[in-house]
């Protein structure tokens, strides 16, 4: 796996997420940051000083803790597992067990301390793994997809607890995940990765609403990504021509420039053609439903409005508007809902 990161700096006490599809290089970057992999080129600085000699690598590694997707517990009791990192550091016995118990209680698994780690459920095992990391009181916590192999209810409760604990400890955290919702929930900043490169770094709001390019937009949940040309300007807004249709968006962009317009499916409203309801949306397009896919709690409706568009509607609206494939509807979205990427 080739990784190309010109530079990356992590602030103290922040929760920094690395997101991107599988194979984007998140794990490789985490392992390089923790010096488990030696970078071919470049260096790692911790509080301004270089980590390079064997001695300083060990010292550096002992300032951080890492949790993987698999719990990777040792074949011993839960308590001994949580104590293992402290034992490696040669700490005194009493102190080790006090600290380990403290973390077990913190993760709500104090009662499991004498159990063999092999008998734990997936959630309990991952809690043990996290407790083992926190017992080290790390200055940096590295999480490599820690929730990915858990079932949704287990994941939610563990994520909630972790969020709470991180608020208390204010541990600097680097969190790799392929799930953008996990990242949006926990992070102060997000780096979006693809094919070994970082495409954008920003706050959750920035990467969601101001994607740097189409890949970021698509990963952050944008379904309609359209290329057009600016044909009119009108004091702060502009109109771009997309396959002959005119879409209005916000921005100060010169005439003739090519832009990429991104429209989130949750910002697209559907109504039936005959309705006369007024809409404040500037962009209103008649279109035909190509496909309706259930996403469980809501439905994904793919439309042809002269350009492809996707809308999410609730199960309730789907029934009320009797949206079926082939039906003609009216799609609308606000000019402010269109994210603009300049080319």
């Amino acid at each position: 796996m080739l990784l190309q990161v010109p530079s990356l700096s992590i602030q103290e006490e922040e929760i920094f997420s690395l997101i991107g599809p599988n194979g984007a290089g998140k794990t490789t970057l985490l392992q390089a940051l923790s010096h488990l992999l030696k970078p071919f080129q470049g260096e790692i600085l911790f509080r301004g000083s270089r980590v390079e000699t064997n001695h300083s690598v060990l010292g550096y590694r002992r300032k951080l803790a890492m949790v993987f997707q698999e719990p990777l517990l040792f074949d011993t009791t839960v308590l001994n597992n949580v104590a293992s990192g402290l034992k490696i550091r040669g700490m005194k016995r009493d102190e080790i067990y006090d600290r380990a118990m403290e973390q077990l209680e913190r993760f709500g698994i104090g009662h499991l301390n004498g159990r063999s780690a092999k008998t734990l459920s997936g959630g309990e095992a991952q809690r043990t793994s996290l407790a083992r990391a926190f017992a080290l009181r790390p200055e940096i916590l590295l999480l490599d997809e820690p929730f990915s192999s858990l079932d949704p209810p287990t994941r939610d409760s563990l994520m909630e607890d972790l969020e709470h604990i991180l608020q208390q400890t204010r541990t600097t955290t680097i969190f790799a995940t392929h799930d953008r919702l996990e990242a949006l929930r926990l992070s102060d900043r997000i780096a979006l990765m693809n094919k070994g490169r970082i495409l954008q770094i920003g706050s959750p709001e920035e990467v969601t609403n101001h994607p740097a390019n189409e890949v970021v937009a698509s990963f952050m949940g944008v379904e309609a990504i359209l290329t057009g040309k600016v044909i009119k300007r009108n004091g702060g807004t502009f109109i771009a021509s997309v396959k002959g249709q005119e879409i209005e968006a916000v921005g100060d962009i010169p005439l003739g420039e090519t832009v990429v317009l991104c429209i989130r499916p949750e910002n697209v409203a559907l109504s039936i053609l005959s309705s006369r309801e007024g809409t404040s949306a500037r962009n209103v397009f008649p279109g035909k439903i190509l496909k309706v896919t259930s996403l469980g709690l809501y439905q994904k409706v793919q439309l042809d409005c002269g350009f492809p568009l996707v809308a999410y509607v609730t199960n309730h609206s789907l029934e009320e508007l009797s949206l079926v494939e082939g039906k003609d509807v009216r799609a609308s979205f606000k000019a402010t809902a269109v994210m603009v990427i300049r080319k």
């Binding site: 060990l58 590694r61 803790a65 890492m66 993987f68 698999e70 990777l72 083992r132 080290l136």
Partner: peptide, 14 residues
């Protein structure tokens, strides 16, 4: 497991 080694090293082991 392959990653066990990385886990042990990341726990600060020589």
């Amino acid at each position: 497991p392959q990653k066990l080694r990385l886990q042990i090293l990341s726990l600060g082991a020589t």
